Amino acid sequence: MEDIISKYLNKKATVEEKTKLLQWIKEDIQNKNLFIETRDIWLLTNDIKITESDIDEAFIRFNREVNKSSQKVNRKVILPTIRNIAAVAAVVLICSVTTFYWGRNSFAPTQEEATIMVMNQIRTGKDSKDFITLPDGTEVWLNANSKISYPEVFAEGERVVSVEGEAFFKVKENKQKPFKVNTKDMNVEVLGTWFNVNNHASRSSSETVLLNGKVQVENNIGQKIILEPNQKISISKTDGSYSVSKVNAEDYTLWINEKLTFNNEQLVSILHKMKYWYGIDIVYNKDIPLDMRLSLTIRKETKEEIFKLLELITPINCEIKDNDQVTITRK
């Protein structure tokens, strides 16, 4: 493979060799890292004399930038949303050291190569959400405790992202370039539509809910299922078995709003919407006052804060179990 890398960097590789190199890079992260390391060494040494003092100075500058980057990352941890941009930061640091050599050697990666080299990753914290616009214009809402990974530039022929947790997508239509969402237990393919994906690790199944358009969902044993609007598919993480049910899809996207407002609504309706707002299961006895009417607004309050409030203003007790189930009983 070293010979093919050398040919590629010197612009002498054939199409077949480029394809083989690309496949090798995709196979393993260590292969990718080796290619990047080899490329950077080549850029720094090709037709340029580098002295030991130059290397020492570059290393000092590199360490200084890394320390600055680390300090920025540490400060961001205290914010509601944590953006994990290590991959992008690494590319920026490399470019800051080697910009001159890139220009001198006229080395520019193709779109597909850039996709492999540069990946963006955004992660949300326990009680935060985020909104992202992808390179193709697709809009994504990322729920709490979730992560999305996507390339700086989408590859030719398809748009692929990966998700852990929950995300809502408004996909920019492009019939020549299908949009794919990969998770650990299912893959979703669309052309242009609105849908919600939920595969939080704490759940026993992965779910996709379709608002409009059409999507194809593939489970972890290769079965492909087409969803229609207002349908939800639940796929077992254990054996890949699935079920499709009719739902009100708008319930599953309540969480993307800035606030949830109740104006003289019955407790039963409030609990129903809170279930989707917080992504939890709510279990209650029939003897609680479900017809009791309340007015309140939820913005960034945690579920613990809101259920504590309900205990103060209604005759109910709320117990949160395993962080994703709430049991409600009458006082």
Rank of each mutant, 00 (worst) to 15 (best):
T193N: 04
R123I: 12
V215K: 13
T193E: 08
L211G: 07
T124K: 01
T115K: 11
Q176A: 13
W194A: 14
N105P: 02
N187Y: 02
P109T: 06
S162Y: 08
K126M: 05
N198R: 14
L134D: 12
Q216C: 03
N174V: 02
R203Y: 09
L211Q: 11
F107T: 12
V215E: 10
N145A: 11
Q111F: 04
A201W: 04
F195H: 07
F195V: 00
I132P: 01
Q111N: 12
N196C: 04
N199L: 01
K126V: 08
T115M: 11
K180A: 10
M117S: 14
V188S: 07
I122E: 06
E152Y: 14
N198Y: 06
Q176I: 02
D130F: 13
V209C: 06
V140S: 07
E113Q: 04
W141A: 08
E158S: 13
G192F: 06
M117A: 13
F179T: 09
N187A: 14
F168V: 02
D185S: 15
V188A: 09
V181F: 03
N174L: 01
V188F: 04
K147Q: 07
E158W: 04
E173N: 09
E158L: 11
P151L: 03
V161A: 01
I116W: 03
F168K: 01
K172P: 01
P178N: 03
K180C: 12
V118H: 12
F107R: 13
H200M: 01
V153T: 15
I132A: 06
T124W: 02
V181N: 12
G157C: 08
K147L: 09
K147Y: 00
F131K: 14
S149V: 11
V118P: 06
K177G: 04
A144N: 10
F168R: 03
Q121R: 10
S149K: 14
Y150T: 09
G213C: 05
E166Q: 15
I116R: 04
V160H: 09
A108E: 15
L191R: 05
H200C: 02
P151E: 06
D185T: 09
K126Q: 07
F131L: 10
A201H: 04
N182R: 11
H200T: 00
K172G: 00
S106A: 14
N199S: 12
T124D: 02
E164F: 08
S162Q: 08
T183C: 11
K147M: 11
F195K: 08
I122K: 00
H200D: 06
T124G: 06
E156N: 08
E112P: 00
K177R: 13
V215M: 08
S128C: 11
N182S: 10
